[in-house]
Each structure stands twice: as structure tokens, then as C-alpha cells.
């Protein structure tokens, strides 16, 4: 299959055969060239600069001094907040990633049931994703307040005394997960697009063969949705590790650093404590962790992701 694609013979180029072969190598590069150019122009430089500065003590205002690996040493050996924020982020990701995927998938499947008014339901579910960060944080502050919050007000109606969500170490992270799940609209939409791409004929054929709904879901829907799931898993992991806005605006990392996300740690080191070199070292470590996780998921994908049009390497 791969061979036929690369050396696909076009009738009129017999004479220029040599040139044609060259084109085959150039064409794919032409397609991806916008990204390659953009990467070299806007991403690579700043990225390497941050690596370079991670070996310096740079208070942003003022001069940078070379300190070798000291930033990295401090980070691993002498900074409890580094471990604390890493642990918080891992806990958050462990809760948020699976929940986000499941909620988005369930909502997408429900919306895929040809119900009346589906375009309105779709809009409702997507709506929270439209609201910008500042207002979002204010809304959640109003929901989660222990004494005066609306969530505990509703709980009190059914005789439950709700916790002080944002001021109890056990609950604050859960509140963060809930607030983050509220913005699942993007994932839901991507799932929905994936679901709609699955032909109804497959289900009809399966029904004729006597497969029930559950079997259909596991034998048809799920396998054909795997490319979408792969995408959502990877982007949700990245989002979980970059979670910052809510923590910054809602809890400020508290109580007792229980919502002190790694991204917030990086942010505060840079813009509150003005240790740009140290912050760069932090960021590079996070970068490597997320990259490692992603590569793991990606490498595993050949075992569970099913592409219909895949160029299989035999």
C-alpha cells in the first residue's frame, strides 16, 4: 500500500522519471512546511532560550548569572513545593483525565440519539466553554462558597451540610475537578463529530446479525472512535498539566497548597518571585514529563487505535 502511494505512476511523466521521484519526496514536505517554518520561526528559538536560561539565576529585572545545574539541584533536593505541586497535579490529572473523557463521551452518545431539540442541548452543553476565564472563576466562587454558596444552599434544602469547598484541603481539589469538567464542551464536540462519522449502515447490519446495543457499542462504536479517543486522551493530559487559570483565580493554590498546581508553581516562580531561570528549569522538567506520558500513550496507540485509512507498515 505504501509503495503504491509513493511511486504512484502518472501516465505522462515517463520521460521525466528521475525528476518525478524527487517530487515524491518534496511534496509531503511542502504540505507540512507551514508548520515547520512556524516552528523554526516562533517556537524553537524561545524554547531553546528557556533551556539556556534555566542554567542561570535571572531575576528578570537585572543581570543573569550562570549557575550551572544549581536550579535543577535546588528543585529536586531542596524545594518541598516542587514535590507538593507535582503531587497535586498528578492527583488532579488522575481524577480529571478519565472523568473528562467519560463525561464528554456519555454526553456525546446521548446527543447522538436523534433526540428532538438536539441542537439546543448541544448548545447548552457547549455554552460553558464559551465563557472567558475571569467570569468563570467568579461564577465558581459563587457556587462553592462554604457559607453563602449556591451549591451548599441546594444541599441544605435536602438536609446535607456541604463542606467549605474551597477552604478544606480534602475538597478543594475536587471542587477544581468539578469546575474543570464543566468546560468539557470541546471534548464532547470532538466525540460527537467522531460519532457522526460512523456509518449507520454498520449498526443496521449488526442489528440484523442480532447484536444488542451493548455489543454494538463495544464492537462498532468504541473501535471506530479510538482515533478520537487517542486525541482526547492526549490533549486532556496536556490540559491537566497546564491547568492554571482556575487555581490562580479561585483558590490561589490553597488551602495549604492543596490546589497548588505545577503550572501555578512555574507561574509564581516566574512572575511572583521573579526567578525566571528557576522557573525555566521547572518548566523544562514538566515538559519532559508530559512528553514522556504522551509518547507512552502514543506508542501504545498502535495496539488499540484503529485507523480505517491507515498506511500500515508491514
Amino acid at each position: 500500500m505504501m509503495k503504491s502511494l509513493l511511486a504512484s505512476p502518472t501516465p505522462y511523466v515517463e520521460i521525466k522519471r528521475k525528476k518525478k521521484i524527487k517530487w515524491d519526496k518534496v511534496v509531503p514536505l511542502l504540505f507540512i512546511s507551514p508548520w515547520v517554518i512556524g516552528f523554526l520561526a516562533f517556537t524553537l528559538g524561545p524554547l531553546l532560550y528557556s533551556l539556556f536560561i534555566s542554567f542561570y539565576d535571572w531575576p528578570v529585572v537585572g543581570k543573569a548569572t550562570f549557575i550551572g545545574l544549581d536550579n535543577y539541584k535546588t528543585m529536586f533536593m531542596d524545594d518541598p513545593l516542587f514535590w507538593q505541586s507535582l503531587w497535586v497535579t498528578v492527583k488532579f490529572a488522575a481524577l480529571f483525565v478519565p472523568l473528562n473523557i467519560v463525561v464528554a463521551l456519555v454526553l456525546a452518545i446521548l446527543l447522538n440519539q436523534n433526540v428532538k431539540g438536539h441542537s439546543f442541548f448541544r448548545t447548552f452543553f457547549y455554552l460553558p466553554s464559551v465563557i472567558s476565564g475571569v467570569a468563570l472563576a467568579m461564577i465558581w466562587a459563587w457556587v462553592f462558597n462554604g457559607e453563602y454558596g449556591i451549591l451548599n444552599y441546594f444541599l441544605s434544602l435536602v438536609d446535607i451540610t456541604g463542606p467549605n469547598w474551597l477552604n478544606e484541603t480534602g475538597w478543594a481539589l475536587i471542587a477544581m475537578v468539578i469546575a474543570s469538567l464543566w468546560g468539557q464542551g470541546t471534548m464532547m464536540l470532538i466525540f460527537l463529530a467522531g460519532l457522526k462519522g460512523i456509518s449507520g449502515e454498520l449498526y443496521e447490519a449488526a442489528s440484523i446479525d442480532g447484536a444488542n446495543k451493548l455489543t454494538q457499542f463495544f464492537k462498532i462504536t468504541l473501535p471506530l472512535l479510538t482515533p478520537t479517543i487517542l486525541f482526547n486522551v492526549i490533549t486532556t493530559i496536556i490540559a491537566a498539566f497546564q491547568q492554571l487559570t482556575l487555581a490562580l483565580l479561585l483558590t490561589g493554590g490553597g488551602p495549604l497548597n492543596s490546589t497548588y498546581f505545577y503550572a501555578m508553581y512555574v507561574y509564581e516562580n516566574a512572575f511572583k518571585y521573579f526567578k525566571m531561570g528557576y522557573s525555566s528549569a521547572n518548566a523544562w522538567f514538566m515538559f519532559l514529563i508530559v512528553l514522556g506520558l504522551t509518547m507512552l500513550v502514543f506508542k501504545s496507540s498502535s495496539a488499540w487505535v484503529y485507523y480505517e485509512g491507515e498506511v500500515k507498515k508491514k
Binding site: 466562587a141 462558597n145 454558596g149 477552604n167 483565580l249 479561585l250
Partner: peptide, 20 residues
Amino acid sequence: AVLVGGKNQQSGDDIFKAGK
């Protein structure tokens, strides 16, 4: 006393306005 938000959360300013 009651815990209120500072700059973040529902701020004490607002709770004071609510007369609580």
C-alpha cells in the same frame, strides 16, 4: 467570624454588602 475570600473567591467586600 466566618471565612471569606480575599481577592479571589467571594470576597469579604461582597459578604459585607450582603449584610452578613
